[in-house]
Design a protein around this nucleic acid. Structure first.
Lengths: 197, 197
DNA sequence: CCTACCGATCGGTAGG
DNA sequence: CCTACCGATCGGTAGG
């Protein structure tokens, strides 16, 4: 009988990715040592290299998984249909109501993608573009007739507002996540819809 | 007569900081090599260490100088007085109408501050807090009576929108910097002022 | 001003 | 012969 993949293979992989996410988020990718990642999840360095051939592969897998999740969630929001404003609220919720795990990975996707070689960046950047295009289409549907070149800037202003939240927001404060989400959504929609042709 | 500082001392220092800013912005602080910075400004590695005792000192000087400039510009906008909305426009202009040099340094201040030891981070973080407090006060003046705890989140939503611009905006496109600045300002003000007690 | 070189470090690998 | 690891260590490189 052939030896099969260890039954806790996926658990171990997840433990590695979680430990790495913690270190990448706090120290940045280049400063995070493979040995420290191993220690943080009770593994050895050799074990890490069994699951991920190189450090870059580990970072790639993490960002890849995260972006798949974001894109899938955004696409589901769109699939549910409804008026564009409602879909936009769904989009904002996907971006703001994230688990601590997911938030950490989001920061990494934003800050550390540039440390990967160009070849590995491309498929990830592609997915990022897909998400922004979906959002740009929503904005066009909500408020058509503006000059064609301004939809992308408005898209990026919203994305920036939402991405930046990870750097300052603490869920332990007075303003809870759903309230923040609601306020960011209202602010943007009212400001954007006030623009007329 | 004591030996004096070389007359092109400041020029050389500036050349080093500019070269370092280019490398830090594109590769990130940890991946930027001191030798490459030296080559990029026609200096030697030893010369760099003459101007900056350590790599961390070089990064600190760069962010320190940049944040001083931002804080001074913001304080001047406030000193000119006028209605709060006008001062807010001035603030947005300080953040969006930056030189290429300044834009690069802004990215570095946002991304690479975490690579400095805590002790060096503190005076820089302090100045960041000053800027956000000035902005929070403006917002309170413009639209008083909202729950006390929401002014900081609105402040950070605006800061995030503006900071993120550096990651996507290309001045060579159709939308010019003053137009983008105007649109970001209008979007925020209309959205924020629509909030009622 | 330059280069030789150090102490330390780190990603990746070989043998079993 | 395969896969899932571990203890040990090497080659190359970085800041200083």
């Amino acid at each position: 009988m052939p030896r099969v993949r260890a039954e806790d293979y996926d658990d171990k992989m997840r433990a590695i990715l979680d430990a790495a996410a913690g270190l990448f988020a706090t120290t940045g990718y280049p400063s995070a040592k493979m040995l420290d990642i191993a220690k943080a999840c009770g593994a050895t360095k050799s074990m890490l290299y069994h699951y991920f051939p190189t450090k870059d592969d580990l970072l790639f897998a993490m960002i890849d998984e995260h972006m798949n999740g974001v894109l899938a969630a955004v696409e589901q929001v769109c699939a549910e249909g409804g008026p564009a404003k409602q879909r936009l609220l769904g989009f904002v919720q996907v971006y703001t109501q994230k688990s601590a795990q997911s938030r950490r990975r989001h920061v990494i996707a934003m800050n550390d993608l540039k440390f990967l070689p160009r070849k590995m960046q491309l498929p990830l950047l592609e997915r990022e573009v897909k998400v922004t295009n979906i959002l740009a289409d929503m904005l066009r549907e909500m408020n058509p007739g503006l000059p064609d070149e301004v939809y992308k800037p408005y898209t990026m202003l919203l994305i920036g507002m939402l991405n930046w939240i990870d750097t300052w927001y603490r869920p332990t404060g007075k303003v809870k996540a759903p309230e923040l989400c609601e306020r960011a959504y209202r602010l943007f929609v009212r400001g954007f819809m006030a623009e007329k042709t």
